[in-house]
Design a protein around this nucleic acid. Structure first.
Lengths: 197, 197
DNA sequence: GTCTATAAACAGATAGAC
DNA sequence: GTCTATCTGTTTATAGAC
């Protein structure tokens, strides 16, 4: 299930990917040009083509970074002995921590609207699907054990991930001005009240 | 509060704005070119400049359409005699109905990530702020009257609007394949359980 | 209001020297 | 791996005829 067909990027490639993420995050997708990436790294645009064959490959690389982060989160949950609510909480707060540690990756949440590349979209879409499957699985388990309120699991999923995303977007639009991790910890308290009924 | 500095667009201007919305929604922002808009309307790109002085004005026009829709929703709520939860429900379902009737406008939910134009962003941002003020006001009123559960109003707002947005995004990405209004009606039932505790 | 023609800027990408 | 030079296509926008 965890299709970690991990690509090993060189140091320079990682610099390029992070540059690209920064530009998308700070100046928007229409400013992500080979020239602008080069400028950030003080090299020419032509030089970039020695590291990525085409611009599309940079998009795919960004998706791979996101996939790696996602897999790190899932490793900390899968096959661990935790209560259902505890698993969802761990996922929630770890996902927030990744965003807090790498601000630019927050754009990926909205990237299927931003980045028009099929390979990229598919990869992100699959990651989201895995997250959904995990969370809904735990919700259903929790409901069978009577640990989680009897509300449509899909609706609970919408509530958990929808509120996470809205909070992260607010953080982005505020220029990362508040403490996301603190805010998320508070938000989780409310969510757990709701989950436990 | 409702700054309805309404611009009266000509019929042709409205055609252009709707064309632009369709292109953004179906083919992404990077395909929104004057040439593509012209093609949809079977006129040349140069002709568009007789209707909008610059491309930016088209973005602003899209924000104005969204503002008009928003104001129609708010008119149906403000100064009406309804219980707090009922007001939030009416807003929620009316907002959904607008999206269902004009699919392309769903992109506006994510437009601050997509469209890089300050006047546009400010207008959308203000509309969102008005919505937030309205909903949080009703939540607080409801809590004072003991009609709404005692959960941080900001968190309840995140839950209501976050889940609405996630649902609409899912609808968009599915190619508008399911019945959004029906799904939203079900979602609201779960939300009202949570609100009323 | 629509057209054709055109300008000026900029995009992604390649060739070849160092 | 980096550079300069260059190709090819596309974009926003304007001028001027009809």
């Amino acid at each position: 299930m965890l299709t970690n067909n991990k690509i090993n990027y060189t140091e320079r490639q990682m610099e390029i990917l992070n540059s690209a993420l920064n530009i998308i995050s700070e100046r928007g997708i229409e400013n992500l040009t080979m020239k602008n990436i080069g400028e950030e790294l003080n090299i020419s645009d032509a030089a970039l083509y020695k590291h990525f064959k085409r611009k599309n490959e940079i998009f795919y690389g960004i998706a791979s970074i996101f996939e790696t982060e996602s897999n790190e989160i899932l490793q900390g949950i899968i096959n661990k002995k935790m209560k259902c609510v505890e698993k969802i909480r761990t996922f929630y707060l770890n996902r927030i921590e990744k965003f807090a540690n790498n601000k630019s990756t927050t754009v990926v949440l909205f990237s299927s609207e931003i980045i028009d590349d099929d390979r990229f979209k598919n990869k992100i879409f699959n990651i989201m699907k895995i997250h959904k499957k995990l969370i809904m699985g735990e919700i259903k388990k929790g409901q069978r054990k009577n640990e989680i309120a009897n509300i449509d699991p899909e609706h609970l999923f919408n509530i958990i991930m929808g509120s996470l995303r809205l909070m992260v977007e607010k953080w982005r639009l505020s220029g990362f001005k508040f403490d996301l991790k603190e805010e998320a910890a508070q938000m989780w308290k409310s969510l757990s009240k709701i989950l436990k009924k």
